[in-house]
Every structure is written in C-alpha cells, then in structure tokens.
Design a protein around this nucleic acid. Structure first.
Lengths: 226, 226
DNA sequence: TTTTTGCATATTGTATACCATCATACAAAA
DNA sequence: TTTTGTATGATGGTATACAATATGCAAAAA
C-alpha cells in the first residue's frame, strides 16, 4: 500500500523550516549569535546543510551575517517595524479590495469560519493556533484575488516580525479586538464593498502596529531594570 | 599608502553578484539549466560557494530549484509580471508621495540631473547605463523618504523582471517617453505635490508594464517560427 | 515503426576532513 | 590604565567521497 506519494523532503528543507520556526517563534532571541557547529549538533546535520540554511535565512533577513564573524538573529528597530506594517497595509488592503469585488459565497463562508476559529483559539489562549488560522484567513483572501506575488511578500514581512506578532495577538484586549476587526473585513467582503473592506484592514493593522511598537520597547526596559 | 579601507569581499559575495548580474541581464536564458560544476569552473570557485549562491538566488526567486534535479533560471508568466508591476506601483507611488512632501532642493536637483543623464544615455543607446541611473533616480527618492524596507522589496521585484526591463527601456519610442515620465515625477516632487507625483509614477509604470507584457510574448513566436 | 525497458552516465544531496584567516577574550607588559 | 601579544575558537573556502536520483540512449518488445 502506498502511504505517501510526496517527494521526501531534503535535509536542507526540513532544517530550514525548523530554524525558521525557531527564529520567528522567538526560540532564539534577537541579536543572539548562531554558531554553525552548535546548530549542526542541535539539528543532527552536517555543516554543509547548515551553511546552506544560513544563506537562505540571510536572504530572508531573519538573520544577519557579518563576514568572518558569523550569523546572528536579526534585530528590528521601530522604523523597520513601522515600514513593514505600512507595506503590509498596502498589500493587504489591495488584496482585500480585490477579493471583495469578486468573492464567492463559499469563500466568504470560509472566512467566517476562520474568524470563529480564531476567536475560540484566543479565548483558550492558544496563540500558536490563532496565528496559524489568521494566516489561513489572509491566505484565503490572497488566493481568491490570485495575488501570489503579494502573498509571498506578506509572508516574508510577517516572518521578520514573527516574534512581535505572537505577543501582539496575545496582548491585553486583543483577544476581542482582533477577531472583531477580521469580522468587519469579512462583512465588507460579503457585501462586496471594497473600500470599506480595505479601510477595515488598514484600521486593523494600525492597531496591531501600535501594540507591536510598544512591545518593541519593553525588552530594553528589562535590561535597564536588571 | 592605504588604497582601500573597505572590507574585502568574500568569494561568495562576488560570485553571487556575478551570477545575479548574469541572470538579470539575460546572459542565462529563462528556464536554462544551471549545473553546479559548470558554474564552479566558470567562476573559479568551489562547489560550496556555488551552492551558497544558489540558496540566495533561490530565495530571491531568480532561479528555481527542484530537488535532485538542480537549479534553473526562473521563468515569468504574464500574471506574475502584471502583479510585480502592480506592487511596484503601490510601493513607488507611496515613496514618491512621501518624497514630494519633504523633498529638499538638493534632492530635486539630484533627480533632475539623473533625468538628464538617463535621457542622454538612451539617445546613445547605452541601455545598461540608463538602467543604472534609473535605479539611482528611484534610490534617491526612497532614501529621501527613508523607505528602506520598501526599497529592498522594489529591488528584488526589479531583479525578477530584469530581462524584461532592459528590453522595455530600449523599446521603440521609449527613449523619449521614459525620461518624459521621470521629469513629470520630478516636477511634481519639486512642487511638493504628492498626488500628482504618485499619479505620474503610476502612469509611467502602466506604460512600462504594457511594453513588458508584449515583450514576454515575443520569444514564443520565435520558437514557433523556427 | 513506435513504445517500453533497462542500463550507463551525469548530477545532486550530504558528510567529512582540512586549512588559512579572522575575531575575541584574556593575560602580560608598558 | 592603556597597549600589546597570544591562545582559542569560528568562519570562509577547498577537496573528496559516496549514495540516491535524474536523464539520455540503446536494446528489446510490441
């Protein structure tokens, strides 16, 4: 019996995924030094594989490599975060507007289902699941509008602010405000109202950015306290 | 005497630049297979370095890597090209509008100088120089607005349509229309008129996209002819 | 003739060993 | 206190080896 017809993943692929996850989920701290040999042992692969992963992560700007000194986890400054949210606003607003103009009923139903699921996850404090489903919510929207290039960019930008997003989602009051915004977006799409949908998106991201920028300050205070 | 205080570039860096240039300038054809050993000999470096470059280029989507079959130069379909120009329009319009709101006189003077230089290069059919200076024109605008993340995205998107851009610039009638558009953008920035500036940008890119999409059809006809 | 099978070859994925150079931290000397 | 060595460890880069996979081509079958 055939249990899997999929191509087996290469070691580089799986290692890359694990490293990416470790960085975006905050397992490695911003600025933390990544030593090749250590990563080899932790992932059980050769230096060859690790070095290839490092090139990928560098290109994705999840890590910074200074020649002869090696890679470390990328750090974000407030200006970068602000810019990332600005660009996300442009890309996501446009995608949502496109989607609103053409969305089928099944798509709207899918979006509504994700809204419910996300709200439940947040009530259960299951942040990780909420992140996954939020991603799927947007993925549905970008797919409907066939915005594949834009989706790719959004994913990369989100990767860079991954650490912040987790905290943003779990932030105080966000467990109700977030889903409320997503429902507003969904409602506007349902009514085929591109402008309202785009505006709801912009408002949503504006709120998220404010929280993220606040979050970015906190760690510094911790250092000063200690 | 010290002739250079700069850090010497690593082999990976120079190799990557050369490969990127070779692809974006069309030295390698879209879809063409890239064999590691061959690249090693052509660049005079080891397989390790080439493989690291491949990771970078894959992440930049200049090449496509299928496991166990190796890398080949990425191909573009019309939908992707259209999307890339759409996104460029968003990012560049926004940057230009920001720039228009704050631009200093020296910046405007710099932009005007680039417009002249580009026009001259095009009259001399020096496409490569025109591309370089067009890049600098936009770089000036994004720098003025401190849009570094956006600039990075624009550069990557431009890399993907590099082959098309060269032909677009040298296209019939483009040697006057292109600079005229850039001058319109510059003029609007000079008058601190963000809306007009953004609109001029959108119009410019709309024209460029039309030419690029036409260009994308041509090679197929060649195949049919042969 | 056309299609299928099977094999030889080329290429990739991965590991390992090696070395020169560079960075860093720490000890010694000024 | 500042400077200078110096030891250690990490990186940039090379070479080599080998299994697994892909590809092209020839032989066999239809």
């Amino acid at each position: 019996m055939l249990t899997s017809l999929e191509r087996p993943k290469t070691l580089k692929e799986t290692s890359l995924e694990r490293l990416r996850e470790a960085i975006t989920m905050g397992y490695f701290l911003p600025g933390e030094r990544l030593v090749e040999r250590t990563l080899c042992e932790q992932l059980g692969v050769s230096r060859t594989v690790i070095r290839e992963c490092i090139q990928h992560l560098e290109s994705e700007q999840l890590i910074t490599v200074v020649p002869n000194a090696g890679p470390s986890v990328a750090t974000l400054n407030p200006h970068e975060v602000q810019e990332i949210y600005e660009i996300r606003t442009m890309l996501e607003s446009a995608a949502i507007a496109s989607c609103a103009a053409i969305a089928s009923e099944t798509t709207v139903a899918t979006l509504e289902a994700y809204c419910d699921k996300i709200a439940r996850s947040l009530l259960d404090h299951d942040i990780k699941q909420a992140l996954v489903d939020t991603r799927m919510f947007y993925h549905t929207i970008f797919s409907e509008g066939e915005k594949w290039v834009a989706w790719d960019l959004v994913e990369r930008l989100n990767g860079r602010i991954g650490q912040l997003r987790a905290v943003t989602l779990s932030s105080k009051g966000r467990s109700t405000a977030g889903p409320r915004n997503l429902r507003a977006i969904t409602a506007a799409i349902k009514q085929q109202d591109p402008d309202t949908a785009a505006e709801a998106c912009a408002k949503h991201l504006q709120q998220a950015m404010t929280i993220a920028l606040n979050e970015l300050q906190k760690p510094k205070e911790d250092v000063l306290d200690g």
